[in-house]
Amino acid sequence: MRKVLVALFALGLAFALAQRYFAEEELKRVAAGGKAYAEVFANQRPDQALCSLHRNRLPADLLPQFLEEQRALIKYPASGKLMGDWRKGGAIFNNLQKANCFSCHFGSPVHLGGDVGPSLEKYGLKRGQSEAVQRYTYEVIYNSWAYFPCTVMYRFGAQGLLTPEEIADVVAYLLDPESDFNTKPAVGSR
């Protein structure tokens, strides 16, 4: 019995350690960078620690649990509607300070997009507006790590950068056939 307890304790300890990325000594050095800087590192989340530890490529055996935990973070608008107001969504999509989507994704009729993420040109016209497409789009924006573990794309909902309603607005901006995103040409398109 005692051996089992010791083994369990060791396992628990190993797990707790595996979740840490920075050692105490390192955090002390980081603290010299100033309060705001240090806090960000001291408050690193376990999922961020895992991505850091594995340099954004999680080993296969960690994936099922990781994906499950990320999925569990996703919340939906109280109304249940995954497509909101595309005009509001456009303002969010095309704002550098807000969601800054256009910096990485091509397809915006307002700004020239980048190529860090896949092109979203005429996203709604290519994919339609089925419930499955709405849900997928909403969930990727809410928590990209639930689909692409450790990707660079912000976890807008999971990290509180956008509310569920704002995310639904962005979904509408991408999917609604009436949206500027689908009716106007993308900046830079040929």
Binding site: F22, Q48, D115, G160
Partner: peptide, 28 residues
């Protein structure tokens, strides 16, 4: 090295995420 590969903050950012994984790609 640890700081370079760290993912932190509300945007989950870190140096390596762009300057290793997305070298040559454009955001801006």
């Amino acid at each position: 090295e640890k700081l370079f590969y760290a993912r932190t903050g509300a945007r989950d950012v870190g140096c390596a995420t762009c300057h290793v994984t997305y070298v040559g790609r454009r955001a801006g």
